[in-house]
Amino acid sequence: MKILLVEDEEAIRGFVRINLKRADMEPIEAGSAEQALRLVAEQGPPDIALLDIMLPGLSGLELCSALREAYPEMGIIMLTAKSQEQDKIEALELGADDYIQKPFSPGELMARIRSLQRRMNIGAWRGPAPAAVAAATAPSAAAPAPASAPASAAVRSGEPFRLAPGDRRLWKHDREIVLTPTEWSLVKLLLDRRGQSVSRDEILSEVWGRYYVGDLKVVDVNIRRIRQKVEDDPSEPAIIETVWGFGYRWNRSDPG
């Protein structure tokens, strides 16, 4: 598994590198966002990116946004300092799957990577051509129309949504909704339990792992991101309902 490690402090980079290699992972190192973009353009996308938020030049948040736009299925974990509370939320809103707070132990680092790995089909994708990363930082062009939902027996239907678990793809009517690995896991959990209220604690355990030690806000931010993609009016959600003081529920009637 290829891991892009973007960290400008050599001591931290060396610590992470050693532990990745011990776990039979292949680290690709960069000391800046600009260097990371060049490496990805030359070598293609990694499976997972570990991005420090505080970088010289382009910030880790800007790098996260560029990589997420170019490679929706890439796993992204942010490395944050304790005081960067707003940065954690912004990173999640930009598409990060998770964050690890410094200082962290080798055990926590590997647990977060393995948890994200379970939410991904590692090796089953390689994304678009490497030039897509450079394009993600340029002025946006019209996006190509996503593929229509296939009439496959493997596709489960809960109108107007169609779910293809084998391909990890989701459509609303005939429009494909592109999801990150974490968004996919969360959507599948709620769709599998349509009409049932699922607590934040259960979502955290099922999606991020039983021993996840992060904040519950990671659930709320991901729900907000998903609503932007599936709701007709995200400010008045009718598909993913909030169960106040408890969690969330996918509306069985699937309005829209």
Score class of each variant (00 low, 15 high):
A143T: 10
M120Y: 01
K217Y: 13
S185F: 06
L20C: 13
D220R: 15
E108L: 02
I113G: 08
K188F: 04
E159H: 06
A36P: 09
D232T: 09
Y71T: 03
K2I: 01
K88W: 05
A151K: 06
L94I: 06
S148W: 02
K217I: 08
G60M: 11
F246V: 04
R168H: 07
D201E: 09
P130E: 13
L179I: 04
P144H: 04
R224F: 07
I76F: 03
D232R: 10
L190F: 02
A153I: 13
D233P: 09
F246G: 00
W250P: 03
F104M: 12
D24Y: 08
G166Y: 13
P45K: 03
L67T: 01
R227D: 15
E85D: 01
I48Y: 03
V243A: 08
K21L: 08
K21S: 14
S115E: 13
P144V: 07
Q84Y: 09
E29N: 14
E34P: 14
P27Y: 05
S235M: 08
M54C: 05
S235P: 09
S197W: 01
I100S: 14
I177W: 06
H173P: 00
V6S: 07
I18E: 08
R68Q: 15
L204K: 08
I203H: 04
A141Y: 05
E202C: 05
I48T: 05
E202S: 14
P160A: 02
D87G: 02
V133M: 13
E34K: 14
A33H: 03
N19T: 01
L170C: 09
E7W: 08
